[in-house]
């Protein structure tokens, strides 16, 4: 007679090129051995491994059925039973937490596996997405019996964090430089720019997360979303650089880079992240994708205004 059975049902979901293990259901069936018809089950002592040589209770009814539970072999029952119960619960919960951490916060070093050639090609894809002739799907490889995505150095469609970080730094510098040319530069202004940039980056990530949620609860690592949201700063850098060189070019470059960024996000999210979405409401998908692309314009406008 087993007391504690953990039933974990895992379902493999194959959508597009991604193979994911989804934990659908976890529950614990706890069969409590206890007082049955006025006597304590003898099977308890066999399973729990009570104290050696401890006499088993007789089968006749006792006036206080819980009396023996706390003496002799009963203490072994409590120690063993509660110990096993706690161990099973804690073990499963730690596994659950570990799996969620690995799902949402993947290894940060994965996002920095880049080289010069990747950075050049990726910038072309981000700034001129309509010139990208290849596919937009991420490449997978079998690792340890399951499929995982190849790092950015081997896959142009993989997200990285080097370009967003450097683009963000470049945006802060270029906007500070343009402020200096206007005679408004101060170190405090750079701090304000930095803060505004971080806020926009965070909101952009939240928008992507919200769109994924509305499209059927697809899950993507947070660092993936941070990377995709951070690519917006590359377009902003081009727009601000245009403003430094020739002020009127800014009004042409800002909508252009916003359009390119929207197109890049739509192409990427459609083929990469939505591969995991359950459901076939394609019109709803398209509307949400369009909304996400259109939201780039207010973001770009706000970031552009921050430096004036």
């Amino acid at each position: 007679m087993k007391f504690f059975e953990a039933l974990v049902v895992r379902r493999r979901c194959l959508r597009g090129s991604s193979l994911k293990l989804r934990e659908e259901m976890k529950f614990f069936k706890v069969q409590r051995g206890g007082v049955r018809r006025g006597f304590i089950c003898t099977a308890m002592y066999d399973n729990m491994g009570g104290q050696a040589g401890a006499p088993k209770p007789p089968f006749n009814p006792q006036p206080n059925p819980f009396g023996n539970a706390f003496s002799g072999a009963g203490s072994g029952l409590i120690r063993g039973g509660l110990g096993a119960y706690g161990e099973r619960i804690l073990g499963s919960s730690s596994e659950y937490v570990q799996s969620n951490i690995s799902r949402y916060f993947s290894d940060p070093q994965y996002y920095f596996q880049v080289n010069d050639q990747y950075v050049r090609n990726k910038l072309k894809v981000v700034l001129f997405p309509f010139l990208h002739r290849g596919h937009w799907t991420r490449i997978t490889e079998p690792v340890g019996g399951r499929l995982s995505y190849k790092p950015p150095v081997y896959d142009i469609n993989a997200p990285d964090l080097y370009i967003p970080l450097m683009a963000f730094g470049t945006y802060v510098f270029l906007t500070g430089f343009s402020l200096g040319l206007l005679g408004k530069f101060s170190p405090e202004a750079l701090t304000v720019l930095f803060t505004k940039g971080v806020i926009v980056w965070f909101i952009q990530g939240l928008v992507l997360k919200l769109v994924l949620y509305l499209l059927g609860g697809a899950e993507a690592p947070l660092l993936d979303l941070a990377a995709y949201a951070g690519y917006a700063f590359t377009g902003m850098c081009v727009a601000v650089l245009g403003r430094i060189v020739w002020s009127y070019s800014y009004y042409f470059l800002l909508p252009w880079t916003g359009l390119c960024m929207g197109m890049f996000l739509v192409k990427t999210m459609k083929r990469v992240l939505f591969a995991e979405v359950r459901g076939n409401d394609s019109s709803r998908h398209h509307y949400l994708l369009l909304l996400m692309a259109l939201l780039q314009f207010p973001f770009f406008f706000y970031l552009g205004r921050a430096g004036v």
């Binding site: 010069d116 730094g169 802060v172 510098f173 200096g180």
Partner: peptide, 24 residues
């Protein structure tokens, strides 16, 4: 060594920010 260019850009950004304090 294989990331020399990428590290150089990070350093370039840092010193450019310090140069802003001098220029303006």
């Amino acid at each position: 060594d294989e990331h020399r260019g990428l590290i150089a850009y990070a350093c370039f950004l840092i010193y450019m920010l310090f140069s802003l304090l001098v220029i303006f």
